[in-house]
Simulated assay, not measured.
Amino acid sequence: MRAPRQTSSSETVTQKLVLERFAPEETFKTKVYAALKHAIINMDIYGTREPTWIDERQLSEKLGVSRTPVREAVAMLEQEGFVKSLPRRGIMVLKKTKNEVVEMIQAWAALESMAVRLAIQRATDPEIAELRTLFRAFGEAHRPSDHAAEYSSANLAFHQTLIGLSRSQLLVEMTDNLLLHVRGIRQMTIGRDDRASRSIVDHLNIIEALERRDTVAAEQLSRDHTLGLAAYVDQHADIFE
């Protein structure tokens, strides 16, 4: 009877290796997709009641690529709900209904409260302190309500910075997909009903909780602040008229 074949040590090691394929080089499609998504996220589509259109030919010319990767990138963005291609009309950036926006803001509240928890664990004291610099220009002599556009920029920077302090790339990516709509609604509402004055108080309270490393308070303050925006949008349908 033949003895069992002995397996060499080199064969044993090879059998246990778990190999992954090399990541393919970035294609024109993924580069165009990233550039176009970034541009769309930074659009102010809720600043006008008219639909926002983007032109395939202009995109091709500005990016210096053929129309094929542009069409492929647009198809990816269409699957994600950012745009819609309409035959013989072009590519329309999609706005959301009031109920959809409310749900997006509620989702942002949940994601940002988790980001706050992670920021307390991972961010340094100087990084947290840097949040205060966003509002340093505002005070009695320079009231947020009197400088709504300026405050709106600081407001958006605050929320994006909070997400970034989590050190979670997944949270950054998930909120990026909400940013186009949440950002636009924040810009539209910040100058209404003296919301800016209340907003800066909320932000400073969140920063104080972060500085104390008070996770429970920071999470609650962050969540309540953003859910307040959701409730305001829910009560003011005229924003979407």
Rank of each mutant, 00 (worst) to 15 (best):
E140S: 12
E150M: 04
I200T: 06
R21H: 08
E78R: 05
V13H: 04
R67S: 11
K29R: 14
R89F: 10
L59K: 04
L204R: 11
P126V: 04
P87W: 06
K95Q: 01
K31N: 07
E241M: 07
K37C: 01
L131I: 01
S85A: 09
A23G: 08
S199G: 06
R49K: 11
A154C: 11
L63K: 03
V65R: 03
E61Y: 12
Q169R: 15
A23C: 11
F135Q: 05
F28V: 09
E25P: 08
L36T: 13
L221Y: 07
K62P: 02
T226Q: 14
R143I: 07
D214S: 04
I128H: 03
L36R: 01
D193C: 02
S10F: 00
R167P: 01
D146P: 01
A137W: 14
Q235S: 10
D202E: 12
G47Y: 14
V65D: 03
R195P: 00
Q15S: 09
M1C: 09
S113W: 02
Q79T: 11
E72G: 02
H159C: 02
R143T: 08
A115P: 00
D44I: 00
T48E: 15
L156S: 04
P69G: 00
H159V: 02
W108E: 13
S60C: 05
F135D: 05
M92E: 11
I239Y: 15
Q6Y: 10
I128F: 05
T14V: 08
V13N: 01
Q79M: 14
V74K: 00
F82V: 00
E112K: 14
L170A: 15
D176E: 13
L94S: 07
A39C: 06
Q220D: 07
E61G: 12
A157F: 11
A129H: 09
D238E: 14
A209R: 03
E72R: 09
T68P: 00
R192L: 15
T7I: 09
S9D: 10
E103K: 15
E26Q: 08
H142D: 03
K16D: 08
I200N: 06
R192E: 14
I200G: 01
F82H: 04
S222W: 04
S222T: 15
R143N: 13
V201D: 04
M76V: 09
R2S: 15
A107W: 08
Q6K: 14
I41R: 11
E208Q: 11
N155Y: 13
V83Q: 04
I45V: 02
P69N: 02
M76S: 09
D238W: 09
F28A: 09
S145Q: 14
I105V: 08
A148V: 15
A123N: 03
E241I: 06
Q235M: 13
